[in-house]
Amino acid sequence: MAGIKQVRNRKLLPDLRKEGHLSKEIVLSTTEKHGVPAGSRLFSHHTLASVRKLSFYHPFSIPEDSLDIILAATYDHSYEHFADKEDLYLQPETRGCETWRRLRNTVGKPPKPKIPLGHPMKRGGITERKSPFSVKLMNSGVHSSQTNPGYSRQPAGGAIFFY
């Protein structure tokens, strides 16, 4: 889950699939945010708190008392010496860890896949056809040059000179 960026949810309903389920569908007067009357837009727009207060929303787990909150905290008394009083109650989502509960109306945006060689791999098909006449074969003809272009072998010393 590392690398997933949290961006603002611009939809009318928050995404609470990790927290609980709705026993029936939420009725929306509109599916648009722009170009509709303010009353219907306000009626259709829900926040995290408004969806959690609906009678047909059933969360998966709810802390029942203060002991459940303390047990779910990130505080570990064997590592922290002289901790503050509020450290007993710090929850993982407050510290930025990924948990089942959302604090803000955001959605996870996965990162773009990395291209290993800096260019996308092409699969299937031939993209370029080379001419068979431009390939130097093993048994080439007598008129083909035997040196690299721009180089020549001198008959006197046999050294290669660049002209």
Rank of each mutant, 00 (worst) to 15 (best):
D65G: 04
A49E: 14
R52L: 02
S23T: 13
V27I: 12
K53N: 12
G35F: 03
K53I: 02
E32S: 09
V27K: 10
K33W: 10
T30F: 03
S50C: 04
S29Q: 14
L28A: 00
P59E: 08
S44A: 01
A49G: 07
R41A: 09
L28R: 07
V51M: 01
L54C: 02
L54D: 07
H34E: 15
F43M: 12
S40V: 15
S61V: 14
L48G: 02
G35H: 08
L22T: 03
T30C: 06
T31P: 04
E25W: 07
G35P: 00
T31R: 12
T31D: 13
S61M: 14
H34V: 15
L54I: 02
T30I: 02
K33P: 11
I62D: 06
V27D: 12
E64P: 05
G35M: 08
V27S: 12
K24M: 06
V36R: 07
V36Q: 13
S50A: 05
L22Q: 02
T47W: 08
H46Y: 07
E32N: 07
K24E: 12
L28P: 03
V51E: 04
D65P: 00
P59V: 08
R52E: 09
I26R: 02
K24L: 03
G35K: 04
P37R: 11
R41D: 10
V51P: 01
S50G: 06
G39C: 00
H34F: 15
L28Q: 08
F60R: 05
F43Q: 12
S40A: 15
S40H: 15
S40K: 15
V27E: 12
T31M: 12
L42V: 10
L28G: 05
G39S: 11
P37K: 11
H45T: 14
H21R: 15
E64D: 06
S55E: 13
H46W: 03
I62Y: 05
S61T: 14
D65I: 02
H58V: 15
V51H: 02
H21K: 15
F43P: 13
G39L: 08
G35V: 04
E32V: 04
F60P: 02
F43T: 12
S50N: 06
F43S: 14
F43N: 12
D65K: 06
F60M: 08
E32I: 04
F56Q: 01
S29L: 15
G39N: 06
A49N: 09
S55M: 11
S40L: 07
L54W: 01
F43G: 14
E32R: 11
G20H: 00
V27Y: 13
A38K: 11
A49I: 08
H34R: 13
S50P: 04
P59Y: 05
K33H: 13
K24W: 06
S55K: 14
Y57A: 08
D65A: 03
F56G: 10
H58D: 10
H46K: 02
K24H: 07
F60Q: 08
S23N: 05
D65H: 00
D65T: 01
F56W: 10
S55V: 12
K24N: 05
A38F: 07
L42P: 10
V27P: 07
H21L: 14
E25T: 05
P37G: 12
P37Y: 07
